[in-house]
């Protein structure tokens, strides 16, 4: 190919360049306007919160020293040189970690059951508008109020302990999974459902034989991912007295038992890793065989 690049004559090029400049400047103007609004919001927010950059620079060094204290035992030795002293309370902590896992599991499963029961009522392809609206607003309420707020209230109603945590996670999971399940149900192929209702099948039969088989694997995926999120949620339930490892963590922080804090955090992170590995393995197996 020996065709040289063609240059347009200037009189032809000028209008093209002008219209390009116009389009580019319009885009740039919009960008600048957006950035200005954004920066204004940031400045207002900074003023409202009382951000003090001098203090920030002053305190950022404190973060380093806080971290070094997290890993220094009372004897002055670095924590990993003496794991027995670092994880001195591992028996109690493991039991609490188990309780946390159990809270997460129980709350997730109960919430998933509720979400499963309600998602068909909230799906636009199965339910008329009025009951659907009610179901959706209810789910929305359950997932918008943070679980720790439910936990605060439930601790007063049901007493201190893991039961309040389980119920709080259940309500929140119910709202969150209910919505995800609804979306899955709305995306199914309606032909099997039409087939069953055309032969005179009841609504229940339609859902059981046409809808559920199509949605089950998607629902299991969402639920497993939710289990991970809920473990994190369960780890803070103890902050308000609703069971699990959070109680131990918050008291260690408040009493400045630095190495206990780091030991507990490491246990939590490690559990999250293991959960992550297990759920992704289950998901992979489900996706290959199902």
């Amino acid at each position: 190919m020996n065709t040289a690049l063609q240059h347009l004559p200037p009189q032809q090029l000028r209008p093209l360049l002008a219209s390009y400049a116009l389009a580019a400047s319009a885009r740039r103007r919009r960008m600048v306007a957006g950035l200005t609004v954004f920066l204004a919001c940031v400045l207002v927010a900074g003023w409202w919160v009382g951000v003090d950059l001098a203090m920030f620079i002053d305190k950022i060094g404190a973060f380093g020293s806080y971290f070094s204290r997290l890993f220094r035992l009372d004897s002055g030795a670095l924590a990993w040189t003496d794991p027995a002293d670092w994880f001195w309370g591992w028996r109690k902590w493991l039991a609490l970690l188990g309780e946390t896992l159990l809270i997460a599991y129980t709350g997730t499963l109960l919430g998933a059951m509720g979400g499963f029961a309600l998602c068909f009522l909230a799906a636009s392809n199965l339910t008329p508008a009025t009951p659907r609206w009610l179901a959706r607003r209810f789910l929305e309420f359950c997932r918008t109020v943070p679980e720790i707020v439910f936990a605060l209230i439930f601790v007063l109603a049901f007493g201190l302990g893991p039961m309040a945590g389980v119920l709080a996670l259940m309500i929140h999971t119910f709202g969150a999974l209910g919505k995800l399940y609804t979306e899955i149900v709305e995306n199914i192929d309606m032909k099997p459902a039409d087939g069953i209702s055309s032969t005179g099948g009841t609504r229940l039969a339609t859902i059981a034989y046409a809808v559920v088989p199509q949605t089950l694997s998607g629902m299991v995926t969402c639920t497993l991912l939710r289990l991970e999120i809920n473990f994190r949620g369960a780890s803070i339930m103890g902050f308000v007295g609703a069971g699990g490892i959070g109680q131990e963590l918050i008291s260690a922080v408040r009493k400045f038992y630095y190495t206990d804090v780091s030991a507990l955090l490491i246990m939590i992170i490690f559990t999250v890793f293991i959960l992550d590995i297990i759920t992704s393995r289950i998901l992979r197996r489900l996706n290959t065989t199902g």
Binding site: Y66, R232, G233, F256, V261
Partner: peptide, 13 residues
């Protein structure tokens, strides 16, 4: 893996 509320506790320290 660490919840926002736990980070808040640490940063308060």
């Amino acid at each position: 893996g660490v919840d926002t509320l736990i980070w808040a506790l640490i940063w308060i320290g």
